[in-house]
Design a protein around this nucleic acid. Structure first.
Length: 419
RNA sequence: GCGUCGGUGGCGGAGUGGUCAAUCGCACGACACUGUAAAUGUCGCGCCUACGGGCUACGUUGGUUCGAAUCCAACCCGGCGCA
């Protein structure tokens, strides 16, 4: 018995795209859906009411961050993630598996989730340890510029906040996520660096599979949590299609409530890895494309049958002064926007961002550019809301297009103008 | 007027005989950002360039020296103190 239910309303004729309804204990999510990221129990710079007003239906927080600060007990005592952050709709939490990557192999290397990975440096093999470093060697890790090292049992890491030592296992991640109490949560996985070779990708994938089983077992041992929370397993396998297929089969066979597709790709590898995985997934489970993405990548995901997406880019680039528009990303700090008095909303093709909760009138590019340049906090806030709104609208439009049987045209039209 | 300290790139401010077109910060210009170590980071920022380098620059003028932003002299300008 799952805490959620998922029904598919309509499938697109010439692609894998599908529109569905995902019902959770805290409400309904119309899929495909974009899930704004609220890592530390807030979508940076945006009030819950504003999220609602621009169409958000669900938010995603992070286990690693909330465990470190303020601690899962506080969130639990507050009544769970949603109550803690004043969000009454559906919630999700990520497992902390991504931090294994971002604080581990990627730490200090300028590698992000989605870069062109030019020259994979030979890596002293810390994260490749086959012998299981049960005890975290801080000096060793630090000397390699990492805050996290992996063994078969779990991951030891130092807090990026104060350097204190911690350890996650699949069981611990589930326990923390039970305390956080989101409607949907993810199994603890190992998100590998795309620079890792095949052998290591296989090793990590198999470890992720073992962790998936342990996560599921831990979840099933808590029947009250099981009634309220759904657990998603995560497909890994790097850029290798055979691994992706194998991983998808394995994860799909275990009995999760939903499936996440994880990983870190180079731009060219995403589609192949995605297709290989999706082809092996059962139709009836909701599929979440972890960490994706940019407009084009989201549409690619939808076309390949993905239902849920989350991404920090909208708020991050917004905070950094860039906005999505129908014609592509605009860097508001650029000189040419200093005296561009065209309205923000019209520029991005929004029909309506004006509501009692949202903006009352469109701001001009010149104004927001000024706010960004002068360091006023309203600038990043406006851009973040704008960008989340843009993505939500893009996905809502895609959903409607699927229902209307016009997804291919919708996607083609968008891509033509945007890229 | 006397004394004293000081005048460096858009600004602030290092440097105090060669390795200085000149550290650094700001401003400015551009780029990056995909399960958030991120309201962050990277690059550029005298002029020209066939990218090897060339040219003009550290208040002004002159001098010392193989060589000066750096030493000397005069002058101009500013702060402070005394008249």
């Amino acid at each position: 018995m799952s805490a959620i239910s998922f029904t598919i309303e309509k499938r697109a004729p010439r692609s894998g795209a599908r529109a569905g309804i995902l019902t959770t204990p805290h409400g309904v999510i119309k899929t495909p859906a974009f899930v704004p990221v609220g890592t530390k129990a807030d979508v940076k710079g945006i009030f819950p009411e504003q999220l609602v007003s621009i169409g958000a239906e669900v938010v995603l927080a992070n286990t690693y961050h909330l465990y470190l600060q303020p601690g899962e007990k506080i969130v639990q005592d507050a009544g769970g993630l949603g109550k803690f952050m004043n969000w009454s709709g559906p919630t999700m939490t990520d497992s902390g598996g991504f931090q294994v990557f971002s604080l581990g192999a990627a730490f200090g290397k300028g590698i992000s989730k989605f870069k062109d990975f030019v020259s994979p440096e030979s890596d002293e093999g810390l994260t490749k340890s086959k012998h299981g470093l049960a005890v975290f060697d801080e000096d060793l890790a630090t000397s390699h510029g990492k805050l996290a090292i992996i063994d078969d049992e779990g991951v030891s890491f130092t807090s990026h906040i104060n350097g204190s030592l911690h350890r996650f296992t699949p069981e611990r991640s589930v326990e923390i996520q039970h305390a956080l109490g989101a409607d949907m949560f993810f199994a603890f996985d190992e998100c590998t660096s795309p620079t890792e070779p095949y052998e290591y990708q296989r090793e990590a994938m198999e470890r992720t599979h073992r962790w998936a089983e342990r996560s599921l077992k831990a979840h099933r041992q808590n029947s009250s949590a099981q009634k309220k929370q759904a657990l998603f397993g995560i497909v890994q396998g790097g850029r290798f299609e055979d691994l992706r297929k194998e991983s998808a089969c394995e994860i799909a066979s275990l009995g999760f409530d939903g499936i996440g597709i994880g990983g870190s790709f180079s731009k060219e590898d995403m589609r192949g890895a995605l297709r290989a995985a999706v082809g092996e997934l059962p139709e009836e489970l909701p599929r979440h494309f972890l960490g994706i993405g940019e407009p084009g990548d989201i549409l690619e995901g939808i076309a390949n049958g993905m239902d849920l997406f989350d991404c920090v880019a909208a708020t991050r680039i917004g905070r950094h002064g860039s906005i999505y528009t129908r014609q592509g990303i605009v860097h508001l700090k650029n000189e040419k926007y200093r005296n561009d008095f065209s309205p923000l909303s019209e520029c991005m093709g929004f029909v309506n961002l004006s509501s009692d909760e949202g903006f009352t009138k469109p701001f001009t590019l010149a104004y927001v550019s000024h706010l960004i340049r002068s360091g006023e906090m309203l600038g990043p806030i406006i851009c973040s809301i704008h960008n989340i709104g843009f993505i939500l609208q893009l996905v809502a439009g895609a959903r409607q297009a699927i229902l209307d049987g016009k997804f291919d045209e919708y996607r083609a039209d968008f891509v033509r103008e945007y890229y």
